[in-house]
Design a protein around this nucleic acid. Structure first.
Lengths: 174, 174
DNA sequence: CAGAAATAATTCATAAATGAAATATTAAAA
DNA sequence: TTTTAATATTTCATTTATGAATTATTTCTG
């Protein structure tokens, strides 16, 4: 029966994947708005969609470690620092979090004993952050689980395909 | 002079684009962790990076309209509904926002007169949401600015390239 | 059909993220 | 060198997002 106040946007059998409903709405919008840049918008929405998905997958895996995607990212960026130290501003640009949020995140990691924080001697405005031994152990401990989560999404693409997507997407930043 | 407590991760002339520093940290991590799935992680981080960038670009453009990326997304998903109505749960899955947040967002859009909200007659658990004339006008008003923002990122790729990236990325959701 | 399970939306307490402003220090300009 | 401007970090108030629990209704199952 067709309701007079609301009907589902798509017949249920046309729901391919979790993105189909979004794509359908984009297509409807395209019909309504002349000049609508469908290809741009679809990719933009797809990126948002995948980003949310991978964040959720990671969060799931990280829960037992009492971490979330943001704290995990901060830890990984520190782990990947050439000299094993980072400043809050570097961490801000490496994680995409605002400096003010980095302060809070580091407060938390500090409280958990995963990092240490001390004033820089060479530039006294700065602060130096470093993983503790415990922090490094934790990073190494959750790796296998995170790799599994990544696999769930990205193992569907071959190495060549991954590199191609990556290189194309990178061009948007040029 | 090389500091004894902290040095920048990369020589400044190697900073290609905003993602280079992240990539560098991923590569350092790869050296430290045998078996590290570099291709997966790099793409995952790149997606996060671009997502943040496009969100910021949109927020910038939307500020004069007193909207942000999330409220804008909600409006667009409503605008793209086949019969011009949506329920909160549909909106939740179309926007990726939790139902509880959809309630808050709709409260706000309602308060601004951009949408209307009434109970469904066919299923009395549901609520029906619909853009008002004012809401539609606003959507149409900000389009050109949003398209410009999209262009800043995605016009660097050809139509064929956009479609290729999209189709590859889509495979991750299969 | 009755009872149980599932779905839809919301409220409320809490957590997470942001912007504006403050403080300290360094770098640049006059 | 003095002053000015820029950078780095933090604090605090506010906004935004989440999870747990609640209420109402519908669907499923025996």
């Amino acid at each position: 029966m067709i309701s007079d106040d609301h009907n589902p946007g798509m017949p249920p059998d046309l729901h391919g994947d979790s993105f189909s409903e979004v794509e359908h709405r984009i297509e409807v919008t395209r019909r309504r708005l002349p000049g609508y840049p469908l290809d741009h918008v679809r990719l933009a929405r797809l990126i948002t969609h995948i980003q949310k998905l991978q964040t959720e997958l990671c969060n799931e895996v990280l829960k037992p470690f009492e971490l979330n995607f943001v704290t995990y990212t901060a830890l990984m960026m520190m782990y990947g620092s050439e000299d094993q130290t980072s400043t809050p501003s570097e961490l801000s640009s490496a994680t995409g979090e605002k400096p003010t949020n980095v302060t809070r995140i580091c407060d938390e990691l500090l409280r958990k004993g995963l990092i240490e924080r001390y004033p820089s001697t060479s530039d006294r405005r700065r602060v130096v952050l470093r993983l503790t031994a415990q922090g490094e152990r934790l990073v190494e401990q959750y790796q296998p689980k995170i790799w599994e989560a990544m696999d769930q999404l990205y193992s569907k693409l071959s190495k060549a395909e991954l590199q191609q997507v990556t290189s194309l997407l990178r061009r948007t930043l040029a």
